[in-house]
Amino acid sequence: MFALMHSSRIESLHLVVDPETGLKAVIAIDNCQRGPALGGCRYLAYPDEDSAIEDAIRLARNMSYKAVLAGLPQGGGKAVIMRPAHVPDRAALFEAFGRFVESLDGRYITAVDSGTSSADMDCIAQHTQHVTSTTEAGDPSAHTAMGVFAGIRTTAMARLGSDNLEGLRIAIQGLGHVGYALAEQLHAAGADLLVSDLDSGRVQLAMEQFGAHPIACEALLSTPCDILAPCGLGAVLNSKTVAQLRCAAVAGGANNQLTSLQVADQLENRGILYAPDYVINSGGLIYVALQHRGETLSTITAHLAQIGQRLTEVYAHAQAEKRSPARVADMLAEHLLNVGPRLTR
């Protein structure tokens, strides 16, 4: 475990077990250089403890990059709760997790993520103030979708020469909270939508409301389109799937879309423009971070508008250096983390 922490350069790793509620959780804090680490709490079934720890560490670094490129006074962190086969009392489990968060004295702020909800955050909030995305604070998914929509327009301009989305074929993989909200915005902009989701009910709803074309999950990646928008779980882009793509660009809301930076190079070699996920999907983080600090909605909306500007900057560097936008974004984030202003402790 120490070797993994050393290789990932993570600041700290915290584990807890609560036999009474069945809680087994990991909190990874990548850094607190600019402020408290902020990142969602995942509640998923993992095959083993090592997988949960590795997921938390990888996602925490992603949050550091996301926060610094979004210009937020936050560090990067992530929590994962290993979902047990049987949960006698879900509320009690998340209350126990709240006590765990409180024990870190404000170094980590938690939020909703895959498998968790605002109701879960309400349970956490009974034992710590270091939580957002509660029922009162609101679901950040709509703001994530707003940022992705702005990023898709920026990507269309960079790759296709216009940010007018009318008539563009955009394939959305995953119609969860973010994917469905994104579909609504793209439909309003006149895009022709191709959609897939494991939940056939969500697909049917998108067909009825947006005139979307249903595509089988296993066929979506190889379906011709202008822009592919992955909005489900991560690791969708690997050497095999990238070889199947028939699109001009990839720009979606999912985290950790690439299995490796070599896959980003493969996309670049194929002439497929890639919007780095932690840049384009930072709208949710912007919302929860600024809302937690008491900022107004107008301030949050103005900050969201900067997502397109940051993507334009990344694309310009990538074009000038003939490198993948993913590598450029990593380089910019590392530079800002190393030389940018830090929190005085």
Rank of each mutant, 00 (worst) to 15 (best):
A3W: 00
A3Y: 02
H6W: 04
H6M: 10
S7C: 03
I10F: 01
E11V: 10
S12H: 10
L13W: 01
G22C: 02
V26E: 03
I29M: 05
N31A: 14
R34F: 04
A37V: 00
L38N: 09
G39C: 05
G40K: 11
Y46D: 00
D48P: 02
D48A: 05
E49I: 08
D50S: 05
A52L: 06
I53S: 07
I53D: 06
I53K: 03
R58E: 06
R61M: 06
N62D: 11
N62C: 14
A70Y: 03
A70S: 13
G71A: 09
G71N: 11
L72I: 02
G75D: 09
P84S: 13
P88R: 11
R90F: 09
L104W: 09
D105R: 14
D105A: 05
G106A: 07
R107F: 04
R107S: 12
S117L: 00
A119D: 15
D120I: 12
D122M: 04
A125Y: 08
A125I: 07
Q126R: 13
T134G: 05
T135R: 06
A137F: 01
D139Y: 00
P140D: 05
T154I: 06
R159M: 05
L160I: 12
S162K: 08
R169A: 08
A171S: 13
G176A: 07
G176H: 11
H177F: 11
L182P: 01
A188S: 14
A191W: 01
A191E: 03
D192K: 13
D192F: 14
D199I: 04
S200K: 15
Q204V: 08
A206L: 00
M207W: 10
C217Q: 14
E218M: 04
L221M: 15
I227D: 08
L228F: 07
N238Y: 05
K240N: 14
L245Q: 06
G253T: 02
G253A: 02
N256K: 05
A264S: 00
D265A: 03
Q266H: 10
I272H: 03
L273Q: 03
A275S: 15
I280H: 08
N281R: 07
S282I: 07
Q291L: 09
H292I: 02
L297G: 00
L297D: 15
T299Q: 14
T301D: 15
A302I: 09
H303V: 04
H303I: 07
H303R: 15
A305Q: 14
E313G: 03
V314A: 01
A320T: 08
S324F: 07
P325V: 08
V328R: 04
D330C: 06
E334A: 10
H335Y: 12
V339Y: 11
G340C: 04
G340R: 09
G340K: 01
G340M: 10
G340Y: 05
